[in-house]
């Protein structure tokens, strides 16, 4: 059974936190609440979070700054809540990297719908990926991956052998460049299963894939480690469809 999506709510108003927590838990979500930005980092350091609901008016830091800082180091979806409700706040919030914006007061059902929508948008299931890129040719950092033949080529056209797991993992990265992917997501997308305690499958495959791509593990340029979160494939990816 898949784990419930974990929503982290940052709002200094305890009754807003309670409203969201109660409503979302009844609708199958796991919810953690915090009343300041310090609490946000503490939760992120110790738990996997799927989406953050962030109030703009926090006691210790402006929510817009929190959003910007968050976006600079992760792709975790963020929905901003604010009683300010001004159009400019909404625009700034979205420009700071928020995925959606909901003015207060809000109905929890509307927030629930938006959370589901953002989660859908920010995820691509392995099945969808299979449908979407089965004829793709990816080019990145001088490399070429031909998905139909499962061949990886160097800049000089030399073939590089990839195991099935390495191919699947690289394909996931190429589908989600410049986006932090957790170990759970990488395992789900590449192997279609959930991570288990002490499961090092992804870390070992990352290590092997880096070797294939000549990516120095001590100072990787392509597959970068994001502490406490996962990995990000950090390069520009071009995709063409070999069918067209």
């Amino acid at each position: 059974m898949a784990a419930a999506d974990h929503i982290l709510v940052i709002d200094d108003d305890q009754e807003i936190c309670q409203l969201i927590a109660d409503f979302f838990q009844k609708n199958g979500f796991q919810v953690t609440t915090s009343h300041n930005s310090k609490g946000l980092q503490e939760v992120l350091d110790r738990q996997k979070v799927d989406l953050i609901v962030l109030d703009l008016m926090l006691p210790d830091e402006d929510g817009l700054i929190v959003c910007r800082n968050l976006r600079s180091r992760s792709n975790l979806p963020v929905i901003i809540l604010s009683a300010r409700g001004e159009e400019m706040d909404r625009i700034i919030g979205l420009e700071m990297g928020a995925d959606d914006y909901l003015p207060k007061p809000f109905h929890p059902r509307e927030l629930l719908a938006r959370v589901k929508s953002v989660l859908r948008r920010t995820r691509t299931s392995p099945e969808e990926m299979e449908d979407n890129d089965s004829h793709a040719l990816y080019r990145f950092a001088g490399w070429t991956l031909d998905v139909p033949t499962r061949q990886l080529y160097t800049e000089k056209g030399e073939k590089i052998f990839l195991s099935g797991g390495e191919f699947a993992l690289l394909r996931v990265f190429l589908n989600h460049p410049n986006r932090v992917l957790t170990r759970d997501q990488l395992l789900a997308f590449s192997h279609g299963r959930e991570i288990e305690p002490y499961d090092r499958t992804i870390d070992m495959q990352i290590s092997r894939l880096r070797r294939r791509l000549n990516d120095d593990p001590k100072s990787p340029e392509l597959i970068k480690t994001v502490r406490s979160l996962g990995y990000v494939f950090s390069t520009r990816v071009e995709r063409t469809d070999s069918k067209s």
């Binding site: 108003d13 009754e15 807003i16 409203l19 009683a83 207060k104 007061p105 809000f106 109905h107 929890p108």
Partner: peptide
């Protein structure tokens, strides 16, 4: 007042 404004309709 601000908190009442932000939460009331939500409930």
């Amino acid at each position: 007042g601000h908190r009442m404004k932000g939460s009331g309709a939500g409930y």
